[in-house]
Amino acid sequence: MPVATRKSDLLDPEFMSRLEQLDIVSRKIFAGKMKGERRSKRKGQSVEFADYRNYVVGDDLRFLDWNIYGRLERLFIKLFFEEEDLHVNVLVDMSKSMDFGNPSKSLYARRVAAAIAYIGLVNYNRVSLVAFSDQYGPEMVGVRGRRLIHQVLGHLSDLQADGAGNLSAACRQFAIRHPQRGVVLVLSDFMDKGGYETGLRYLIGRHYDLYVIQMLSPEEIEPNLNGDLRLRDVEDGDFAEVTISRALINRYKQNLNAYCSQLRDFCTRRGVTYMFTSTAVPFDQLVLNYLRRRGLLR
């Protein structure tokens, strides 16, 4: 029976303080619902000048540039960048397969999600956390502000890996429910027998700034098995009877490499940032170094 993770297991205060230096980088500028700390493509009321345009009837007279009128006797409207909030969405795979490995992939994924969420909250972004397995949810939508971090950690702590993964259905649901464009981070092992292509296409179609992190446990990357085995799939209870040999292990590794390469190629061709990590890689190193290098954080 899975045991609920403590909040302190996800993020410790010292690490949180280091995360406060970071910000989430979006390669696209998105329109938000509320004014935030982020510059929007939409021109609006802010202090930062953007451009001029000719006055048309109905424009707010407060934005007329009187200095130009006095000099040129023509009416121009001053345009300013409007500062908006950023939607940061983290999709965490909580299927049963994520409960595998030491440390488990689900814990690792929730830690990453917690770190991203905290960075988003600190920078007044609108953070949404969506867990999925064979069904969509639970989710925490539109959280904003540093003070809500404890709720976020509590939500993540209560998540439990269960059920078979269904990435396609989860992505489809997400795309329907979250039409606002923003940064979307998918944390999964992508070992979905239904395939990952359909699900990712749903997300790509929404023009999110999409990041995919595939995480595998060391046991999956370098299987330490021998003998005549009956391998049981923890998600669907499927069995594979194998006799471990060097040839078989080699073939498994080749297939794993090919699988990961296909996913990476799929993502790269569609402008999706793909990252691979082993749960053996220290979590803080992943966040502080790896994600910064790949441009998600700065």
């Binding site: 397969s97 994520m98 595998f100 490995g101 992939k105 092992d189 070992m191 027998k193 446990s217 046991e219 999956e220 098995l225 003998g227 005549d228 085995l229 009956r230 391998l231 049981r232 799939d233 923890v234 998600e235 499927d238 069995f239 594979a240 009877e241 194998v242 040839a247 078989l248 073939r251 498994y252 080749q254 297939n255 794993l256 699988y259």
Partner: peptide
């Protein structure tokens, strides 16, 4: 029938494929 030891794994996806390949 050979009695095999049962081992839980994350997914049989790649193992099945490896066996079929061999």
């Amino acid at each position: 029938k050979l009695k095999r030891r049962e081992v839980p794994i994350a997914s049989t996806l790649l193992w099945r494929k490896a066996v079929e390949d061999l």
